[in-house]
Computed example of a mutant assay.
Amino acid sequence: MAEESALVTLDDVRAAATRIADRVLRTPLVPAAWGDEAHPLWLKPENLQVIGAFKIRGALNAIGALDEVARARGVVTHSSGNHAQAVALAAREYGLKATIVMPEQAPEVKLDATRALGGEVVLVPPAERESRVAELVAEHGYAYVPPFDHPDIIAGQGTIGLELLADLPDVATVLVPVSGGGLLSGVATAVKALRPNVRVLGCEPELAGDTAESFRLGERRVWPVEQTYRTMADALRVCVGELTWAHIRERVDGVLTVTEDEIAEAVRVLATRSRLVAEPGGAVAVAAYLAHAGELDHGPVVAVVSGGNIDPALLASLLAS
């Protein structure tokens, strides 16, 4: 279990913001006119990042923090798709080789995008993602860039928290998707350090609700892939990590879960009412808002739209439903 002293600090997040400032899009806050009057909604559209997801922040910070010797060996990671693209692009910007271990069920749109960015993709069964990375590190000496459970990743994702507080100082609640927990950990770190009274809530599918269960029981729970892979939110199928759980336990106020129908409705609402394309995992915070707004504290709400890399056929089917 991580000690309090091992947790990422506000200074770490600010350092990450400086490191990645010229390499990422500072996404705006977009007002949603269809929000609840008692809980005005603002969207933080990380789907507008160059790779279509927030993951570029953590990947650039982590690779940027590597020393030259480590970079020269190349990097490796595992991902269902968004972190894969982020590492591939960050490695390309630094002139490095990137090897990406991806689950065989990863959406084709994410596989194609990762390869197009120069990543060498290795496909494995979902349960073998981490073990295959360990083998590649041992074989080639690659530097491992974890998808979530690392201080540099958490600090990079936390830059979102700095931006949303600067743009909406009177925010009352921040809704953040959670899977491995890097995004939630980072945002909570920044928000709680600067505005302790703001409520930070994780949001996840009921079918991959390990964080909600962990929060309820007060200890980290890991669900088997057979359970988490039931959700359409492919970006949210991994369980919270040990380091991220330490952050979440200390700095997050609660976890909301949503059904598959609620996720689908959020994708439709974002597309038709805010003109934003979100993948199911990227729409989960909005789904939580739509399902649970009445339970939130009065005042402005920010929902992080974490990604927009949705298979076109899935988007078409959801919009037609």
Rank of each mutant, 00 (worst) to 15 (best):
V198D: 06
A266N: 02
K97E: 15
L123H: 09
G58Q: 03
A266K: 01
A16Q: 02
P146F: 14
V76A: 10
A264K: 09
L236R: 07
P45A: 08
L25R: 15
E213H: 09
D311E: 14
L194C: 03
L117Y: 06
Q85F: 02
V267C: 01
D152E: 13
R273V: 01
L184C: 14
V121D: 13
A86I: 02
A15C: 08
L201M: 15
F54S: 05
P205T: 09
G118I: 04
D297K: 01
H39V: 00
H247I: 01
T231Q: 05
E139P: 00
C203P: 02
P28N: 08
R237D: 08
P31I: 00
T77D: 02
L175C: 09
T244M: 08
T159M: 10
V277D: 01
G282T: 00
R230W: 09
P146Q: 12
E295W: 00
G52D: 07
E206R: 07
I153W: 13
R132T: 15
A316T: 13
L290H: 07
E204C: 06
R129V: 03
G307A: 12
A264W: 10
Y289C: 09
D297G: 01
A70M: 13
H150I: 08
P45R: 04
L296A: 05
N47K: 02
A84S: 13
L168I: 02
P146I: 08
T189C: 14
P107T: 10
E139R: 14
G158L: 07
T114L: 10
A271W: 03
I310K: 01
A62K: 09
G58V: 02
V240G: 11
R199P: 00
A233E: 10
L89D: 04
R230D: 07
E213W: 07
G118E: 08
P177E: 04
E120A: 15
A264D: 14
V187T: 07
I310G: 05
V305Y: 00
G218D: 02
V178M: 04
S131V: 07
V222G: 05
V87I: 14
V109G: 06
P169N: 13
F215K: 01
G282V: 04
G218P: 06
L60C: 12
L183F: 12
T259P: 10
M102T: 02
P146V: 05
L318V: 15
P107F: 13
L236I: 02
E46N: 04
L270S: 08
S5A: 15
T159Y: 05
D253E: 07
A53N: 01
L164H: 09
S131N: 09
A2I: 09
A138M: 07
T228S: 15
P107I: 12
E93G: 04
A246N: 04
V277Y: 03
D297I: 00
